[in-house]
Design a protein around this nucleic acid. Structure first.
Lengths: 186, 186
DNA sequence: GAAGTTAGTGATTGGCCACTAACTTCTTTG
DNA sequence: CAAAGAAGTTAGTGGCCAATCACTAACTTC
């Protein structure tokens, strides 16, 4: 396998492992094991652990953006909103790793910023703005509406992260029908 | 100092340290140093590191709930909403640790749930529901409105965590005047 | 077939970290 | 005042982990 292909599979494995343990709670060995490669070899493919985490973060944002873009293709306004919402809720219910990797990314960037490292933040903010813009125009181009839309997404993230079951009353406010079907549909 | 008082100061110190490094990125020694006590003594006051993190998480939720309750006292509807929003934005701008500790808590509970430990989740969900209910009635008792309100709060958390400056266009959607004053006022 | 590159491994190391055991010092009280 | 108990320390252990080093095996190029 070429180094480039290996790097690719390392990123996938890293997303999975970092999602669970976060930066500090994930050993490079666990990533290597998942890839099926020796631990030292990771440091041939990436300069250090941070670089692996950064690559995983970028990939996570890119994946979500592509999900948005695909879902919204050819749609506008209300329809576009429904489409993204459905695609996103499907994602986080079927692949909780994506959700958790997102949260891990947020805390990591907050920590980096607090520690005076603004490089990581720059990358993440750029990725987030791409995500934002991918949704913004199809949703109608009104900043207020896009904000509300993203806000709901963030609340979903947090509630899902805390493990509230979908029939819990905390979901009542935006998913009336979810409480009866047990599934998230907007 | 009595053990109870010490425990109290350990919780405060732990909130500060865990906010920066998260569970795995924070050593018990750094907490002990901040308290001004030897590291092994922490294990007299708490059975293990997890218990310290749990206590810090509970305190974080309690503090936020009390903030809400105080801000909202005697107010209803629109006024109540303004009051909580102002109090909360003041909190996360003046004390970023609170914000980060919250995120760390969410990540940790997600990891715990994924690992099959539901005890931590139970505590956090209970605390969150108290927070929810503290805001719910004063805001008018409409689940939809409370949901929207909390959703905005979560988006603020994430945007602030990522380090977006307040004059960035990403804030445009809900804080038109913040972009000119550089301060968050709803 | 020599020279060089690419993919990959095993062994190691220096440092950190949660947690324990055993000891000291101070305070309270019968 | 003696003894008990509470507050706190020093010293130490076993385990983990990022990163380095030296090496091999296969393939490519001239």
């Amino acid at each position: 396998m070429s180094a480039e292909e290996r790097r690719e599979s390392v990123i996938r494995a890293a997303m999975h492992e970092f999602a669970r343990g976060g930066y500090h709670g994930t050993s490079t060995e666990s990533i290597a094991k998942r890839v099926g490669v020796s631990q030292p070899y990771l440091f041939r493919l990436f300069p250090n652990k941070q670089a692996i985490f950064l690559a995983a973060s970028e990939r996570c944002l890119r994946d979500t953006r592509e999900l948005f873009a695909t879902a919204v293709e050819g749609l506008r306004g209300e329809e576009a909103q429904q489409a993204i919402a459905n695609a996103y809720t499907r994602l986080i219910t079927e692949d909780p790793d994506k959700l958790q990797m997102q949260l891990q990314m947020y805390v990591a960037v907050a920590a980096a910023e607090a520690a005076g490292d603004h490089e990581f933040g720059k990358v993440v903010r750029a990725g987030w703005m791409e995500l934002w813009d991918t949704a913004h125009l199809p949703l109608g181009g009104d900043p207020k509406e896009t904000t509300t839309f993203m806000a709901y997404g963030m609340l979903i993230n947090v509630l899902a992260a805390m493990g509230f079951p979908f029939d819990h009353r905390v979901w009542e406010g935006f998913y009336p029908q979810a409480r009866t079907t047990g599934r998230l549909e907007m």
